[in-house]
């Protein structure tokens, strides 16, 4: 199979996937290539693969998530792993157990892979220091969400045939977004021109130092863009604290047809989900023919399979 041939040519060189900051272009391309093949295999409904047969995968979610957890679970099961879902937000943490104690406890069960989501930045890296298995960051605070950025890159590459040289506008709550940070890293590494678009209250400090052009006017920010990536605005930030109202936010920063017309005619419309229709994106734009939002979800499973496969290749006794 093509994927395994490519893998033999170049092996993914890291034990964990914690952040996109340290990923090189070849690292990213290895994962995208594997995922690309897996996506085709998934569509063709090829028989379940057994590359993770006998391996155990723990989904450790300190923060509730439906889609990311389901995506990892699906990915693990498609590769033949035994998948255990742990929603820690409702268990031992309530009893006062520290993150490190949880990590040590789980480590004693000798899993092969742990997928972790946590509400605090850096928590996944901290946990990775205390376990012997491979750790995948499924989102840590406002820090990183690597598989989201990788699936976004794969979606763009499949639709546009390339990433280098494209203009990608990331729009919305940049300050609190791990998706934005990971995407800025990956897209820059692959040679895209990255823009970030947000009202100043949703831009982080020193946002001009992140390797992206900064815009506070969305019509300028998405002018001639090849890709428009919308971010979710968390409900608690909508009313008065960071923006005055959802109505005003939608007026100036929501993606509607009028603003969309400023982008290139073939611009892709993306959103990591879940969407607030009528807040950051008009309902009809979300369902537009150029919207690849559903494809993103599909590529999510493929990318997570690719990551699990790549990391499993580095496990002991492999």
């Amino acid at each position: 199979m093509a994927a395994s041939e490519k893998q033999q040519v170049r092996r993914y060189p890291h034990r964990h996937l914690l952040s996109c900051e340290q990923l090189s272009a070849p690292d990213i391309n290895i994962l995208l290539d594997i995922a690309d093949d897996l996506a085709e295999a998934n569509r063709a409904r090829l028989a379940k693969r057994d590359i993770l047969s006998g391996r155990s995968l723990i989904n450790l979610f300190f923060e509730a998530s439906t889609r990311t957890q389901a995506s990892f679970e699906m990915a693990g099961k498609r590769l033949g792993a035994d998948v255990l879902n742990m929603n820690v937000s409702t268990s031992s943490v309530q009893k006062g157990e520290t993150l490190i104690d949880t990590a040590v406890t789980l480590n004693a069960m000798r899993p092969d892979l742990i997928v972790v989501r946590h509400h605090a930045a850096g928590a996944v890296e901290l946990l990775s220091q205390k376990v012997d298995c491979s750790v995948i960051n499924a989102g840590d605070g406002a820090h990183q969400h690597p598989t989201q950025a990788l699936l976004d890159a794969l979606t763009i590459r499949r639709a546009k045939g390339r990433i280098g040289g494209l203009t990608v506008a990331i729009c919305g709550d940049i300050q609190h977004s791990r998706v934005a940070r990971s995407n800025i890293n990956v897209l820059n590494t692959l040679g895209a021109n990255v823009r970030i678009v947000a009202p100043s209250t949703l831009l982080p400090a020193a946002s001009d130092r992140l390797g992206a052009m900064v815009y506070t006017d969305m019509t300028e920010g998405i002018a001639n863009a090849d890709v428009i990536m919308m971010l979710r605005l968390q409900r608690e930030r909508m009313e008065g604290s960071f923006v005055p109202s959802t109505r005003e936010y939608f007026h100036f920063f929501g993606l509607d047809h009028e603003k969309l017309a400023r982008a290139k005619p073939d611009a892709l419309i993306m959103h990591p989900g879940p969407m607030n229709r009528g807040v950051e994106i008009a309902s009809t734009v979300a369902d537009h023919s150029r919207s690849v939002i559903r494809e993103q979800v599909e590529m999510g499973v493929a990318i997570r399979m690719a990551v699990l496969e790549a990391l499993a290749g580095n496990l002991p006794n492999e």
Binding site: E21, G122, G141, A142, H143, A205, A206, L210
Partner: peptide
């Protein structure tokens, strides 16, 4: 507040 905090995603 600054570039380091922004990269680390810390308040």
């Amino acid at each position: 507040s600054g570039e380091v905090a922004t990269r680390l995603g810390l308040p």
